[in-house]
């Protein structure tokens, strides 16, 4: 178990190293941030000073080396634009994104799982077929378009929900959260729904497929032959089994949901990391971009670890590290 954990962390370290190198080289190839950051009519001396101040006068490998040396000490560089530590900048925006992504994932389970169970138990009913047809839309409609439509309908036409921002927030553990206030929740609802649409469809289909696969198995027949109520058969015997793939996929999707929140945050002007990263890419603010990607990788690794641990809880046949 301990060996397994260490191995996973070392792997994660290598991924982060490789990724930071790729980003360094890639951004260097795309363009020079100096051209964007410094006003075109600045003179040569001013230009040289700014370049030196940002450390961009050194060769790329040396810049990378400085970055690595800082990184092991927890310093991911200062933003060219805000002149603040990149890490602090991102961590400041992270709660908003996490709140949005976690709400979206919870919504996808709360909506997708019951619908999927229903569609699996009654595959030929009209309601079951409708649910399945709806899930195709959830997969194929582009997120930004759905977001705009939601705003058109619920914010502009009906005026039920606000279309942008986090609304009133309240503090918990020294961080501001929207979900703690009524107004914040109203602001959270539409972007979270927008972000969860894909995952709702995914969970729904997984659950439906799981039910269809599990119902004819011998152990379900045996459970029924014992005289159990249909409710116990479905909610204990079937659900426990389909929870294994659902939890795995939903857990792993949390990472991509965080990554995809970029689009939703832009549409709903949600002040999270996604919006920050779009702005940073526009001005080639390399420290922020690198730091963001490092944090996203770290999140992915952590999420994967937690999912693996959950998996062993849900499926007694699985043992970590390959030893029974």
């Amino acid at each position: 178990m301990a060996g397994w954990l260490v191995r996973r962390l070392v792997q994660a370290g290598f991924v982060m190293l490789a990724m930071s190198a790729i980003v360094f080289v890639g951004l260097h190839a795309i363009g020079n941030p100096v051209d964007i950051l410094i006003s075109p009519d600045a003179d040569q001396a001013e230009r040289a000073r700014a370049i030196a101040a940002l450390g961009l006068d050194k060769p790329l490998w040396e810049q990378y080396f400085f970055f690595l040396r800082g990184a092991v000490q927890g310093d991911l560089g200062r933003s060219f634009v805000f002149n603040e530590p990149a890490l602090k900048l991102i961590l400041g925006r992270m709660p908003a994104t996490l709140e949005l992504a976690v709400t979206a994932v919870i919504m996808s389970v709360l909506v997708g799982l019951p619908l999927g169970l229903f569609a699996g138990l009654y595959p030929n009913s009209i309601a079951g077929r409708t649910v399945m047809a709806g899930s195709i839309m959830g997969f194929s409609l582009p997120g930004f378009w759905v977001g705009l439509m939601l705003i058109m309908v619920f914010a502009v036409t009906l005026g039920w929900l606000p279309s942008s921002g986090r609304g009133t927030t309240a503090e918990l553990f020294g961080v501001q959260w929207s979900f703690l206030t009524r107004d914040g929740l109203r602001h959270l609802l539409m972007p979270a729904l927008n972000l969860s649409l894909f995952n709702i469809s995914l969970v729904l289909r997984l659950a439906r497929a799981g039910v269809r696969e599990t119902m004819p198995l011998d152990y379900i027949r045996f459970a029924r032959a014992k005289g159990l109520s249909p409710r116990r058969v479905v909610f204990v015997h079937v659900l426990r089994n389909i929870l294994i793939p659902v939890v795995t996929v939903v857990g792993l999707e949390l990472g991509s949901t965080i990554a995809f929140s970029v689009v939703t945050e832009s549409v709903f002007a949600w002040p999270g990391m996604g919006k920050l990263i779009i702005d940073s890419i526009n001005v080639l603010d390399r420290p922020v971009i690198v730091a963001y990607l490092m944090i996203v990788v770290a999140l992915f690794v952590t999420i994967n670890l937690v999912v693996d641990l959950l998996y062993t809880v849900l499926d007694p046949r699985v043992r970590l590290g390959g030893r029974a």
Binding site: Y219, I220, F222, H237, R240, D315, P316, R317
Partner: peptide, 8 residues
């Protein structure tokens, strides 16, 4: 196949 694999 007759016993549910995830229940004790």
């Amino acid at each position: 196949m007759t016993l549910n694999p995830v229940l004790r």
